[in-house]
Nucleic acid binder design. Structure first.
Lengths: 350, 350
DNA sequence: TTGTATGCGTTATCAT
DNA sequence: ATGATAACGCATACAA
């Protein structure tokens, strides 16, 4: 348990060489330094015998680099898909030999600042500031002290920083096109965004709507009705759908602004004796895990969480290494359509 | 951007005192060392002026402690509730001024060993080895080099190590009692564990069953039928329930071994024209997020993820600090019953 | 009460 | 080709 630490000096001693020689062998630079093959072998042998592992802390103090990245997020617990964001970041980091400090600010700016500071104190090479739902935020000032990047967020005030976000506008277009290609041109309803209640801090709401509207307008299609929601939980979807049903005589298709709303919508449609997709087609956003569990399985425009996390870390690493530093601005990640069973083709008489 | 690092020496210089004095002031030990109030004030002032922050790497090299804990888990991405495990761990760590390295082994023992090693190299003060579903595992050998703890897992071979696990046996009892107290004594079915197919690597399966059986046996109640499942996803629950319905004439209550199975069971019961809870009561395990979304909301025995994570870190910190080192063995965390709407009281004629 | 000197484990410079 | 030696930033035993 209290095993004595073995240091480079121990290795050198056992190998009968200078510590310098041992160091060079281990950093693989024996070519430059013209270390004899014999010495190299003795060092390598000693390393194996002693089971030597370099002390990264000491190395960091000397080199000024920790091979460590800090990731602080507002929430990682309540979002079921949050794991995939982290996963992508973790994978990318590991592939480059980096480890991740992870922390959660719970949306508290003060705590966020504190956590970023704790990471900076530990000399992380860079920082990822992440949000679980896409939004604008004010980066804490400590961010400036290290290379850093915004993940699933954009700076509230213009700043020369890299942001990685889902391409929500194109995602909106994708949802609209999915309906269009199935022949839906009338009786299209929206729930999640509409007159009155709209979550204005959510970029997703704004940009998804923008994409949807753009496609429909270009085709001369009118949205039959749209109902906003205070929040995007299943019961909001249920209420909104019931309201929608009162406004629209012949609902043919329904765009839900996320899968949770869609879950409530499924229920409300069933209440009204409407079948999905035979009577009403449904398309949604996010690709939450339960999208495959409901019946029929939900066709949805996926939030590319894994890719977001991975891309953020890769861009950050580029900046850290100084090779081809990425230009500040938004990097938009494509939102793929997951075609499942909730859209039914609808043919019109010629 | 390339701001020059400010060191303790800078602070001492500006304050016009020795580095030692500055150091003592900052470690708050000026009482012991009888540093003058004047010196203290000058140091504190210099710290503020220079915006000095101690270099944790350097401090670690000197003190041998990093205030850092490593958490490596087999999966954190595919389990929707995984976040809560992490959350509890994160909270406990932060409260004590520790930061967490987090990594994911994807169930690959080689990678797991590698990640643990990477953390040990960085001189973490302790390691949490976590699993997302409760199981037995072989701790990688590098674990022995640091204080460490198993989270949601137990050692496959007896080892003097602390394990934090849900109290699945008591959880099983809780589920059984919930049914009992609602008056269910006949027509009780089980899905998830049964003759033939059972996931034997899952402690949850074994212990939940053990608890259930214990309670029913004590009451002289026979389980009407049990159907095992290869895995515990919704469609397995759907199939199992259909099979069960063929075996049992009058199904009165159904115990599902997790919420996903229950989801499938809901569907299958609906297919058979059975209503929950009017015709069949359902009780389940885990308390996944969607347990509140289904109709009726699911009564379920919760997996205490937050508490698990928090407890693991707290015990580990006790060990690290050497104060009252926790005894090796299993620490069982209570699984609370979340009473919702899927159990209906059933009254028997006296 | 305050200052000087040393060591933590590496890396890297400079003579040899 | 190899071996002293300094330096990274901090904490602390010891001297003053």
């Amino acid at each position: 348990m209290a095993k004595k630490r073995v240091t480079l000096a121990d290795v050198a001693r056992l190998a009968g060489v200078s510590q310098t020689a041992a160091s060079f062998v281990l950093s693989g630079r024996r070519e430059d330094m013209r270390i004899s093959a014999d010495v190299e072998a003795r060092v390598l042998h000693a390393v194996r015998v002693l089971d030597y592992r370099p002390n990264a802390v000491s190395r960091s103090l000397r080199t000024g680099t920790t091979h460590t990245i800090g990731l602080v997020s507002d929430t990682i617990s309540t979002a079921p898909f949050a794991g995939h964001l982290i996963w992508g970041a973790l994978d990318a980091a590991r592939e480059h030999g980096y480890l991740l400090f992870i922390a959660e600010s719970e949306g508290d700016p003060e705590l966020e600042q504190e956590l970023v500071q704790a990471m900076v104190d530990r000399q992380v090479d860079g920082i990822v500031l992440a949000s679980m739902y896409t939004r604008a935020l004010l980066p804490p000032k400590s961010l400036g002290e290290r290379p850093s990047i915004l993940l699933n967020a954009v700076p509230a005030r213009p700043k020369p920083i890299v942001s990685v976000v889902p391409d929500e506008i194109e995602g909106g277009r994708t949802a609209a096109r999915a309906l269009l290609e199935a022949g839906h041109r009338e009786g299209i309803g929206l729930i999640g965004v509409g007159p009155g209640r709209t979550r204005t801090d959510s970029l997703a709401a704004i940009e998804r709507f923008q994409g949807i509207e753009e496609v429909f307008t270009a085709e001369g299609i009118d949205i039959a009705a749209a109902v906003g929601c205070d929040d995007w939980q299943p019961h909001h979807g249920w209420e909104a759908t019931h309201r929608l049903l009162r406004e629209v005589r012949e609902l043919s298709a329904l765009i839900c602004f996320n899968d949770r709303l869609a879950l409530g919508a499924y229920q409300a449609l069933a209440d009204a004796g409407l079948r999905v997709p035979d009577d009403v087609s449904v398309v949604s956003f996010d690709d939450d895990i339960y999208a495959t569990w409901v019946r029929p399985p939900l066709t949805t425009v996926a939030l590319p969480h894994y890719e977001l996390g991975r891309t953020a870390v890769e861009l950050l690493l580029k900046e850290i290494r100084g090779e081809r530093r990425p230009a500040p601005g938004r990097y938009r990640i494509r939102m793929p359509l997951r075609e499942r069973g909730s859209i039914r083709p609808r043919f019109h008489p010629a």
